[in-house]
Design a protein around this nucleic acid. Structure first.
Lengths: 103, 103
DNA sequence: ACTTACGGTAAGTTATGACTTACGTTAATA
DNA sequence: TATTAACGTAAGTCATAACTTACCGTAAGT
C-alpha cells in the first residue's frame, strides 16, 4: 500500500522536480536546493516525504547525504496502475455491453 | 504534460476511491456518492478534477451522467514512469560505478 | 579545540484545497 | 405545465501542507 503516499509525494511540483533531479543525477541536499526556487530546509522536507514514499534513499558520505533513486516506490506505483489494465477489463467490457444492449 | 495533474488527482484518498469505483463499474454521480462518506457535490467536484486529468469521462444519459474510465490519463502516467526505467538507467549505472570506484 | 560546512528539525505563517450548504439548470414524468 | 430527480457550480469554512527563519547536532579541516 505504498502507492497511497506515492501519489501525494509526486503531486507537488517542486517535490516532483526534486525527485526528477535525483533520478537524473544523485546529488546532495545543497546541490539539489541550488536548482530549486525554494530554501534548503524546504528541499530537506521534500526529501523526507520522498524517502517515506520509497522514491529516493540517502547514502551518508561524511557530513553530506547523497540522495539516489529508489525503485520500490515506482514499482508499487506501476503495480497499482497495471491493475486497471487487467482486473478492470472484465467489468469495463461488461458495462459496454450493458449500455449497447439497453432497450 | 497531463501527468502533472494526474498525480494531484490521485493523491486525495476519497478522490482515488471515486476513481477506483468508476474503474470497477461505470456509475452515475448519485451512485458514486452513495458509497463515499462525503456529499454529492463533493463527489461532483472530485469527478471534475478526474476528468481534467484524463482519468474519467462522462457520457450523458438523460439527466444522469454515467462516468466511465478514461485511459489517456493512465497512459500518460505510465509513460512518465517508464522514463525512469530507460532514460535514467545510464546516469544511475554511472553513479553506482562512481560510488564503488571511489578511493 | 575551534571553526566551518552540511543537513535535519522546530515553530510559525500563509496558501491551497477538500468539504459544506444553497442555488440554478436540465431532462423526464405525471 | 408543474413537479421531481439528477447534476453542476458558487460561496464560504476549515484543515492541511508547503514554505520561511532560527536553531541544533555532526563530521571534517585548520
Amino acid at each position: 500500500m505504498t502507492y497511497v503516499n506515492t501519489f501525494t509525494a509526486l503531486a507537488d511540483p517542486t517535490r516532483r522536480a526534486v525527485f526528477e533531479a535525483v533520478a537524473r543525477q544523485p546529488q546532495s541536499v545543497a546541490e539539489l536546493a541550488r536548482d530549486q526556487p525554494v530554501s534548503r530546509p524546504a528541499v530537506s522536507q521534500h526529501l523526507k516525504v520522498l524517502v517515506e514514499a520509497g522514491l529516493v534513499k540517502a547514502t551518508p558520505q561524511g557530513t553530506r547525504r547523497i540522495y539516489t533513486l529508489d525503485r520500490t516506490g515506482l514499482t508499487s506505483l506501476r503495480n497499482y496502475l497495471d491493475q486497471f489494465w487487467t482486473d478492470t477489463l472484465g467489468a469495463y467490457a461488461a458495462e459496454v455491453h450493458r449500455q449497447s444492449t439497453k432497450h
